[in-house]
Write a protein that binds this DNA or RNA. Structure first.
Lengths: 204, 204
DNA sequence: GTTTATCGAGACTGCTAGTCTTGTCAAGTG
DNA sequence: CACTTGACAAGACTAGCAGTCTCGATAAAC
């Protein structure tokens, strides 16, 4: 998803391939770079479109020609660099898979400049329903991967038949976001381990 | 906490008791009522100070004379009505106490007009560090109560000595806020029950 | 009646998202 | 090469909101 399709993608039908000046791919990248940079720098301060355009050396209109809203730019900037394919380990042992998934999630969110950027993005999403929507499709992929991982474990008998998998998913992502956003407690390997044990306990 | 102390409370020293017009208590209540009403009505839309003042039939300056910021008004409006004393059941059985606490938390947040108001408040807090601070002291009381409840259980031997109580607290509030804010899954008695079992499992 | 502080009303500043305008520039077309 | 088309940078502009400031009115104390 790089939003290359935002401005009338269908309207210019095959009859007329293209005329006029072409889009500047360098500007496109410069905008994403600027957005990611500002997102990572910002200490909770909202990132403005003016700042993105100025940093990228681009007119505001150029930003809005490629993306429909500020939120879309920010999300695109973050996902552009993030691993889009969520691993979903499958070793045959629930405990191993789950611990790996949780550890990867914790680490991934805190690696490099991702953490401040992601925090700022979520804060923006709290007030921008459009962005909240976009983020939901982004997080849905991860939720699905995790749920599949749990389903495999349950099918192998590593979880009780009547286990509420959705609750487990929410316990994991609940703790993750809660600690990630408030920052009052760590999200390290030890926590990942304890959380894993807490969720598979009594079922083996 | 009704912020009666915001405008220079200490400066008017005991030497000069008071002269001039007194504060209008009716306006004070009208502002809180208006804020709570708008908070409850708002479907995610931010509540504005102008709207609060207009609804209360009050000048904006009057609002700012009593509260230092919009966030303070909103939080005050919500806590004015909420039960300030968090129960913290103590029956002598961890499972019972924990289930009661979680159920109360879930129910309390969804009773009456609280839910939309609280959701809006949190969204505002995401962009208003001042409000975020105020909210933290509000939630800290509940976290402490829960942690004490867990400590009592651990001392009775209902949890392993090396149990990470802070992680349990975060698992509970993590799930709560995650579901409360996203609204993708229920926060009912069944969930409270399953969550309780998940957290005390294997320790009895 | 004078002083003093609050009141309602609303003008004002500063900031931001998103739109619109303008003149310029690059890429095809005839 | 001249012309058309559409993207470009720059920035004016609108609309909405938090918080401040001003003003004339009003209420309480003295």
């Amino acid at each position: 998803m790089t939003a290359n399709d935002h401005p009338q993608s269908s309207p210019d039908s095959p009859t007329r391939p293209h005329t006029g000046r072409r889009r500047n791919e360098a500007a496109h990248q410069a905008i994403l770079d600027a957005a990611l940079h500002l997102l990572a720098e910002s200490d909770g301060t909202p990132v403005t479109i003016d700042a993105i355009a100025r940093t990228a050396g681009v007119g505001k209109q150029t930003v809005y020609r490629w993306w429909p809203s500020k939120g879309a730019v920010l999300l695109d900037a973050l996902t552009d660099r993030a691993d889009q394919d969520v691993p979903g380990p499958d070793t045959g042992a629930l405990r191993i898979d789950l611990r790996a998934f949780i550890t990867t999630t914790f680490d991934g969110a805190q690696r490099g400049a991702t953490a401040p950027a992601l925090r700022t993005l979520v804060r923006e999403a709290a007030r921008d329903p459009h962005l909240a929507d976009l983020m939901q499709t982004f997080t849905a992929a991860r939720r699905t991967t995790l749920r599949d991982l749990l389903t495999r474990g349950r099918e192998r008998g590593e979880l009780a038949e009547d286990t509420d998998l959705d609750l487990i998913v929410d316990q994991i992502y609940g703790v993750f976001w809660y600690r990630f956003l408030l920052g009052h407690a760590p999200l390290d390997a030890t926590v990942a381990d304890r959380l894993t044990e807490s969720l598979v306990a009594g079922n083996d």
